[in-house]
């Protein structure tokens, strides 16, 4: 039996208030959970030097911001700010991409836009040196660049999970009306690449290193709960080696590209090809596709490629 999303959000609130001892259980109704079946998922790939235009044009081609944000929504924009690295080192999402998406969400009528990441290095250093803190300064009170609040990690029962049955997930992500995932495309020692689905690591608590066993399936399990309304893979510059942290500029390739899709599996599958790999190279993509969470065959996608 599934429940509505509203029901789940109420369970989270009750659990936080201590009024319920049962861990919030994540079971969506089929209708709400499944990707629209018959239609081919749309994947937009745009390339260009002007990142502001790149984001704006990309979102427009993906259906326009109105499709992803409605008036009065609370929106979470989740970039990768995991490392104490500078923009050119390509370990974090480009600040301009983040900023433009936040502005678009505001244009779309968002009541509040939250931006955060559960960082690996000191959070203040990451927020500062990634350039994201400066980029979001002065966007107004509706935009909140926040540090992670440990109190907000809520244990969630992942009913559809096969490898991961329960994990702590960030409350604001569970409760937000809209979730926009903005990973940076980069190499990763264990999972080969880190794209959209791996970016979920920044909204979950616990001993994250312990997820590295059967990581692909675990990411797919988490993807049954954390479902972005839009995934924007920042490939303006890609860390080709020594990821996910990098540091050497020699490992960075400037590609001026963005991949956008409402289907996070399709976004990852297409994103994988940017590294010259087949679209089914990532365990997480394959596992998620198998679970019916999205498309991984390029032939089954509607792909728009533009140079701006």
């Amino acid at each position: 039996m599934g429940h509505s999303r509203r029901w789940f959000v109420r369970q989270v609130a009750l659990f936080t208030a201590g009024l319920s001892v049962s861990v919030p259980r994540f079971t969506y109704d089929q209708a709400e959970a499944a990707v629209p079946p018959a239609k081919k998922p749309l994947v937009v790939s745009v390339q260009g030097k002007d990142y502001v235009q790149l984001v704006r044009k990309g979102v427009e081609l993906a259906g326009g911001i109105d499709q992803f944000v409605s008036s009065g929504d609370t929106v979470v924009v989740k970039p990768n700010i995991g490392w104490d690295r500078r923009v050119e080192q390509a370990a974090n999402t480009h600040p301009l991409v983040v900023k433009t998406l936040v502005e678009l969400a505001l244009d779309g009528g968002a009541k509040r836009v939250q931006v955060f990441d559960y960082t690996c290095n000191d959070a203040r250093r990451c927020y500062h040196n990634s350039g994201i803190k400066d980029a979001l300064a002065g966007l107004g009170r509706k935009v909140q660049l926040e540090y992670i609040d440990e109190r907000k990690f809520i244990p969630v029962e992942i009913s559809k999970g096969t490898s991961l049955k329960r994990w702590k997930i960030y409350q604001d992500v569970l409760e937000a009306d809209r979730y926009i995932n903005v990973p940076v495309a980069k190499h990763h020692g264990l999972s080969r690449l880190t794209l959209g689905m791996k970016n979920v690591m920044g909204v979950i608590g616990g001993n994250r290193g312990r997820l590295h066993h059967d990581l692909g399936q675990k990411l797919a399990d988490l993807a049954t709960v954390v479902k972005p309304d839009l995934t924007v893979i920042d490939a303006t510059r890609m860390l080709m080696n020594n990821g996910p942290q990098g540091g050497r500029l020699a490992d960075v390739k400037q590609t001026d590209q963005l991949v956008l899709s409402a289907d996070q599996v399709a976004a990852d599958a297409y994103g994988t090809t940017l590294f010259g790999l087949p679209s089914d190279s990532l365990d997480s993509t394959v596992a998620a596709h198998k679970m019916g969470l999205g498309e991984m065959n390029l032939s089954a996608m509607q792909i728009i490629e533009r140079t701006i």
């Binding site: 104490d84 690996c120 290095n121 990763h188 020692g189 264990l190 290193g209 590295h212 066993h213 059967d214 990581l215 996910p244 942290q245 990098g246 540091g247 050497r248």
Partner: peptide, 14 residues
């Protein structure tokens, strides 16, 4: 068991 969390966090540029 796959892990290499140490490699992931190692901060030296090389």
């Amino acid at each position: 068991i796959p892990c290499i969390v140490c490699e992931e966090h190692c901060p030296t540029h090389d």
